[in-house]
Design a protein around this nucleic acid. Sequence first.
DNA 1: CGCGTTTGACCCGCGC
DNA 2: GCGCGGGTCAAACGCG
Length: 253
Amino acid sequence: MEFTLLDTCLDLSLNSTTSLDELPIKQQEVIGLGGGIPSNDEAASDHLAKEVKRLSGENTKLREVLSVMYDNYNTLRKQYMNNCSTSGTSRKRKAEKITSRVNSELSDEDSSCNKSRVLVHHHHIQRSDHTTLLVKDGYEWRKYGQKITRDNPYPRAYFKCSFAPTCPVKKKVQRSVDDKSIIVATYEGQHNHSKVVLEAGEGSSTTTIGHSHKQPEFNKLLIDQMASSLTRDPKFKAALAAALREKTILTHK
DNA sequence: CGCGTTTGACCCGCGC
DNA sequence: GCGCGGGTCAAACGCG
């Protein structure tokens, strides 16, 4: 559900031929239809024109926000690559801290300098699903541990890939402190086998680490990351809800 | 009975 | 060197 909303939102923000951009055309149609209409309708169309202007402004703002986020992403990515090339001899935990800090902001897919590839993925869950830490990602996992960590009241579950005995991939799953509807899954390593199950409708929450070099999937993952960040911003949520409400009203007229 | 999950104990790296 | 905390192990347990 939330992903559907976000898809719409990203569409509105990223695509220059968005529905919002088409709104002036629809508004012209309304004005055209009311050629000899009374002053009431003129006032209404005037109001609509103002609304369209306001929405266009919001749309521009949203695009700016996304563009800033993308810039930040690129900066962090560069910093991370620098860290990889300079601190090759750092001890295990330190390296993990660096990678996890970077990954909390972005998911670095092509960290070729990092032997144990770490990938953080945010999953939105249904309200009724709040008791489980199950994340359908197309692989089979065996839980081998659970722990309460210091910085998060929710338990962290540890999983190993159970499909292939030799598969080194592990994942940690923990509810986000900020938003309990978000499950943060941290993947470590690369699968040495293909996906096990591909259930219909799970596409938006699926991460294919084994094929991470594919650019379109990386872009999709990046968008997912950005979307997750955006949904945690109450201002963004409010603006998005308002924009969608207005859009729905206009298209149904 | 076999398999997956739970959970307390243990290990080990890091910071002081 | 010691304590803390995250990660892993493995015995106990539950379910089909």
